[in-house]
Design a binder for these strands. Structure first.
Lengths: 333, 333
DNA sequence: GCTAGGATTGGAACCGGTTCCAGATAATGA
DNA sequence: TCATTATCTGGAACCGGTTCCAATCCTAGC
């Protein structure tokens, strides 16, 4: 592998000059530049990025920490990150988190070793101590789908989203509204809890009493959601509408309804949350939280911070949009 | 940020000794080691991986090139890669390919710049020239779900898989068997074509004449598959079984069948291909090609090559298993 | 004709590790 | 006791870039 010194020798110039040509920095005469470019061509020289990283202190790499592709919504956010990063000169290193201890290890180590220039954390809220460390680190961090006052964030207002979804059902005339979701207490992202809060708030605002029988939560996944939905549908006085904590669960609800012979949306309205692709296929009414866009925005915010190194954390809130498809309908007696 | 020299000074030893402690290489006396470890602790020192990379020539990074997460099957393979890589000391850098030109750029550049120690290519078969370059490069490459004689590969026998699926339907007594898939000619991975060949071969082996009306291909995706399935089901003499090129398309077929009031499996048997998670949910009979495992094996082969630098390409074939679920059934008049 | 100042250029130091090699010390054997 | 060897240890070179700084050349201005 030829080095910059080989090129310098071949072009009969100094190594500094070759470097200048490579970075087309300060003035190099046209003839010299030509000579250097010719030598580079002849030797088939490519600068070694590692050496460059060492001397510049920049790695041109962004580290992405996420709960690894366990849910379509993470994949969709990651897709947004990838898309936005492709427009820049930065590479993407993936750090997958499978357990709280793994998460903590990355939170601790990644900001210290100079492996990446910036960190994107997807759907993994740090605790106060971790956030403090991240905030003090030289490497900027942006949280996507997680909040901490000390760090820059791309946020989704899950409470508001929960209200939006519930309000939609209320507006359609429903009064017996079920809520079905992941476990509310989780070591990872507590979005289900916030959405539940939104659900409760919307009911309260409309003066609809909350019925604990209409609230059920359990392990994630379509099958489990179907199981929970069967339970709701088997109640003596079953709900006429179900708000599922995410789209995958909503699809599980659709499964259960079909199986039970309950017609959607005639006899049961179903609304999801996320706006993943599967919701399109299934024509599910849902709350679109712009997952792809969250990845894009996260990258934008990180790159901005990297280039301006403004230290004050920024918080950006993504819009939420009700996408009305065919699974919700006006309540009919 | 403290450096190895700071540690050396603090522990009153030479930098070489610190390095020895860090790499617990050749003999260092117990007392010296203790002193160095204490200094490291006190200074909160972490070795800079970039500097290490420059001097050792190893980056401890594997580059993964893949058509970016456009299909569940790629995600599943990637998951396997991630899982296996997590057991090693290697990191993973993701290079996403959205177009043939992007693919060609990565094939060309990645082996040259010393950014990664090894390359995994998922579902992107290189042409001869590219394969030659990759084979000659100092950086080892392993193809997952793609074949080239000059390179190590983790393979799936799509032709055999196509035969397996078709044979299953034939064994059940079906004679009017449809085949529905992606476009057979694609700039990317031609798995659909191979599966189609397997379909044709199985028919031929059983002496069942091929009916061109039963073969349809088009853009990928569930919806498109449903559209194509509607077409097949609307034929004067519709097939009694459909083999879909992949699970997502098979799910599209199920959609179309339900919509048309055709009962699965009573009136129509459906078999998919891949064994993605969605196939579990939908209780789809399918050919499991062990996607996750393909990622794991790819990593294993790559790491092996990295550590033994054996230059001769290895080819490993993954098994194919028929998973019989509920969407296929004995043909009944 | 002489000098100030801008344009080019090259050498050397530097980034922060690893490792070769030689020197120092301790232990072993005769 | 002395030579020999094994064990430890540190300095310096090296990986391959970038960049500071000083040197050189050239041209314009007086």
């Amino acid at each position: 592998m030829p080095t910059i010194r080989d090129v310098a020798k071949r072009a009969s110039v100094g190594i500094a000059t070759v470097s200048r040509v490579l970075n087309n920095s300060t003035s190099v005469s046209k003839e010299t530049r030509q000579a250097v470019l010719a030598a580079i061509e002849e030797l088939d020289f490519t600068p070694n990025p590692i050496a460059r990283q060492l001397s510049t202190g920049r790695t041109l790499t962004v580290g992405v920490i996420l709960p690894f592709l366990t849910m379509p919504s993470y994949v969709e956010r990651l897709r947004g990150v990838q898309h936005a990063l492709a427009e820049t000169e930065y590479h993407m290193v993936l750090f997958s988190v499978g357990s709280p201890s793994e998460r903590d290890a990355y939170f601790k180590d990644l900001p210290r070793n100079n492996l990446v220039d910036g960190i994107l954390i997807i759907s993994l809220p740090p605790n106060d101590a971790q956030a403090e460390r991240l905030a003090l680190a030289e490497i900027p961090t942006v949280l996507i789908d997680a909040y901490h006052s000390r760090l820059s964030c791309i946020l989704t207002d899950d409470v508001k989203g929960g209200m939006l979804a519930t309000q939609h059902l209320i507006d359609l005339g429903h009064r017996k509204i079920g809520f079905l979701s992941d476990l509310l207490e989780t070591p990872f992202h507590p979005s289900a809890r916030f959405r539940y809060q939104g659900y409760r708030k919307a009911l309260e605002d409309s003066g609809i009493p909350f019925d604990p029988a209409y609230h059920i939560s359990g392990e994630r996944g379509r099958e489990n959601a179907a199981k929970m939905a069967r339970h709701l549908l088997a109640l003596d006085n079953p709900p006429t509408a179900i708000f599922a904590g995410n789209d995958i669960q909503a699809i599980g609800v659709l499964d259960a309804a079909k199986e039970a012979g309950v017609k959607v949306p005639d006899e049961l309205s179903v609304i999801g949350f996320d706006g993943v692709r599967d919701s399109e296929y299934t024509h599910l009414t849902t709350i679109d939280q712009h997952l792809f866009q969250s990845g894009v925005r996260g990258v934008q915010m990180l790159i901005e911070t990297l280039e301006s190194n403004s230290p004050s954390p920024q918080h950006q809130r993504l819009p939420l949009d009700l996408i009305r498809r065919v699974t919700t309908q006006v309540f009919q007696e």
